[in-house]
Amino acid sequence: MRPLTEEETRIFFEKLVKYIGENIKILIDRPDGPYCFRLNKERVFYVSEEIMKKAGNVARENLVSLGTCMGKFTKSKKFRLHVTALDYLAPYAQGKMWLKPSAEQQFLYGHNVMKSGLGRISESVDRYQGVILYSMNDLPLGFGTAAKSTSDCRHSDPGTIVCFHQSDIGEYIRSEDTLT
């Protein structure tokens, strides 16, 4: 386990900014004690400093998880968010989409969201911006990338994809053994 290098931090933040924008500040600077980002086995964990210090006693190879896993660095050093990060993305999300109950299952099985399944969308979502997907009763279901901007959404056919699937809470079951 180690702190992220500057380059890693940059790559990580660039990804996070797509979803929560300036709100990363809230994650970095918390009123309830210091929290930090730590890297272990290419995974980034968001963890309170107290727990991190205690976990420092565990050998790297034995340490499976601590705090919340935000995602991992791929072999080509890109950052990929995991669904476990949803708890931190959802409250600060800038782009939001709400799914109709009929489309929820499709999304939770790992499919993209089509216009027909879109219940509503927050305003001024840009193309390729990160969006959090909610059910109609405001339960965060996952996140993805907007395939169309808000205004484009309006004019598109029901069959067009409006959001590319990235991660959903169905992964807790589907990829149970790879999530940490």
Binding site: P3, T9, R10, F13, K25, I28, E49, M52
Partner: peptide, 22 residues
């Protein structure tokens, strides 16, 4: 790499710097 435990305010400022740049 930096040691596991760094001064928390230092780390915070560093992260904020990176964020500002991003």
């Amino acid at each position: 790499f930096e040691p596991l435990v760094i001064d928390s305010t230092k780390e915070k400022n560093k992260n904020l710097d990176v964020l500002a740049r991003v």
